[in-house]
Lab assay of single mutants.
Amino acid sequence: RKEMTAACTPRRRIINLTSVLSLQEEINEQGHEVLREMLHNHSFVGCVNPQWALAQHQTKLYLLNTTKLSEELFYQILIYDFANFGVLRLSEPAPLFDLAMLALDSPESGWTEEDGPKEGLAEYIVEFLKKKAEMLADYFSLEIDEEGNLIGLPLLIDNYVPPLEGLPIFILRLATEVNWDEEKECFESLSKECAMFYSIRKQYISEESTLSGQQSEVPGSIPNSWKWTVEHIVYKALRSHILPPKHFTEDGNILQLANLPDLYKVFERC
Rank of each mutant, 00 (worst) to 15 (best):
L129V: 07
R1D: 13
R12N: 12
L150T: 02
K236G: 10
E188C: 14
E231Q: 09
H57A: 15
R201H: 02
V161C: 14
L129N: 02
S216T: 09
Y139N: 05
L99F: 07
M101F: 05
E29F: 12
N28P: 04
G110T: 11
T9H: 10
K236R: 09
Y80D: 08
N259A: 10
E182V: 12
Y198M: 04
T59A: 13
L64N: 02
L211V: 15
A175G: 07
P223L: 10
S43V: 14
V178F: 02
G116L: 07
S240W: 07
K184R: 14
A53R: 00
T229R: 15
T112A: 09
A94H: 13
I205K: 03
L64I: 10
K2Q: 14
K2D: 10
A53Q: 01
M4Q: 15
K265C: 08
Y124L: 10
N16Y: 06
L69K: 00
E147P: 08
E146V: 08
P50G: 07
P245V: 02
P162H: 01
L155E: 12
E188F: 08
P245Q: 04
E165Q: 09
P93D: 04
S240V: 11
G152N: 06
T18W: 12
G86D: 09
Q24R: 08
Q76T: 00
A100H: 02
S212Y: 14
F82G: 02
S216C: 10
P245E: 01
R89I: 15
Q256Y: 10
L121V: 10
E177W: 10
M101Q: 08
Q76S: 02
E217I: 11
S43G: 12
L255F: 06
E113H: 11
L243C: 11
L255C: 11
L104G: 01
C8F: 07
C194W: 03
G213H: 12
V234K: 01
S19P: 05
G213P: 06
E188Q: 10
P261A: 12
I157R: 02
W226T: 01
L142A: 02
L238V: 06
N84H: 03
I205M: 12
M135N: 03
C47W: 04
D115R: 14
K130Y: 09
S91H: 12
R1F: 13
L90Q: 02
L39C: 04
N41Q: 14
A175L: 11
Y124G: 15
L164R: 14
P261I: 06
F197S: 00
E143N: 08
S212M: 13
F82P: 00
E29T: 14
C270L: 10
Q51R: 07
I205G: 03
K236Q: 10
N28S: 09
M38R: 03
K236D: 09
G46M: 08
L260F: 11
M196L: 13
N65F: 01
L23D: 00
K60M: 15
C186D: 01
H232S: 05
I79G: 00
N224P: 15
L99Y: 12
E268F: 04
F197I: 00
P162N: 02
N159W: 05
L35F: 11
V178K: 00
Y124K: 14
E188I: 08
C47P: 03
W228L: 06
C270Q: 14
R13P: 05
I15E: 04
F170E: 01
V87K: 09
P168Y: 03
S240F: 10
R1G: 11
Q203R: 12
Y235M: 05
I205H: 04
Q30E: 08
I254E: 01
Q24W: 09
H232V: 03
S91E: 13
D138G: 04
N84V: 00
M38H: 03
R269S: 11
N179P: 06
P93C: 09
D181G: 11
N159L: 05
N179L: 10
N65A: 00
I242V: 11
K227R: 06
L190W: 04
G148Q: 13
K192N: 05
I157T: 02
R173E: 01
R269A: 10
R173H: 07
E231K: 04
L96A: 03
G252Q: 07
I27V: 13
I79S: 03
S212N: 09
A103N: 00
R89N: 09
R201Y: 01
I222T: 10
L99C: 10
N159M: 08
K118T: 05
L156G: 00
K131D: 15
T18F: 12
P261E: 13
Y264C: 12
Q203C: 12
T210I: 07
E183N: 03
A94C: 08
T210R: 08
E183M: 03
Y75L: 02
E134A: 07
M38F: 06
T59C: 08
P219G: 13
K68Y: 05
V234S: 00
K60I: 12
L142E: 02
L35V: 07
V161I: 07
Q24D: 02
V266E: 15
V45Q: 05
S43K: 15
E182C: 14
P93M: 06
P244H: 01
E123N: 13
Q203N: 14
Q51V: 10
N253H: 15
A7N: 07
V34E: 14
I205L: 10
L21G: 06
I77N: 03
V218Q: 15
E134F: 07
Q76H: 01
Y75Q: 03
H32K: 05
M38V: 12
F44C: 00
G152F: 03
R11A: 08
F248V: 03
S225Y: 11
E177S: 06
N159R: 10
Y139A: 03
K184T: 07
Q56N: 11
T5I: 05
D115L: 06
G148D: 12
R13T: 06
R36N: 07
M101D: 02
I79M: 09
I200Q: 03
Y264E: 15
Y75N: 03
P10H: 06
E146A: 10
W226L: 02
E182A: 12
Y80W: 14
E134W: 05
W226I: 03
L260Y: 08
V20E: 01
I27L: 05
D181A: 15
F97R: 14
K68W: 03
Y198D: 00
E182F: 14
I254N: 01
I125E: 00
A6W: 07
S22D: 11
T210A: 07
N253I: 15
Y235Q: 00
R173V: 01
L167S: 02
V230F: 01
Q256T: 15
V178D: 00
S206I: 08
S225F: 07
N65I: 02
N16D: 13
P117L: 07
L88T: 15
E123M: 14
E108P: 06
K236H: 07
T176Y: 10
L142K: 00
F128L: 12
D251Q: 10
W111F: 11
S216W: 09
N149L: 13
N224I: 15
G148P: 02
E3V: 07
D158R: 13
F170T: 02
L69V: 06
N41W: 06
K227I: 04
F197W: 02
E165C: 09
L17E: 06
S212C: 15
P163M: 11
G116W: 07
M4A: 06
F197R: 02
S22I: 15
V20W: 03
T5W: 05
K118D: 04
L164A: 07
P168W: 01
N49L: 03
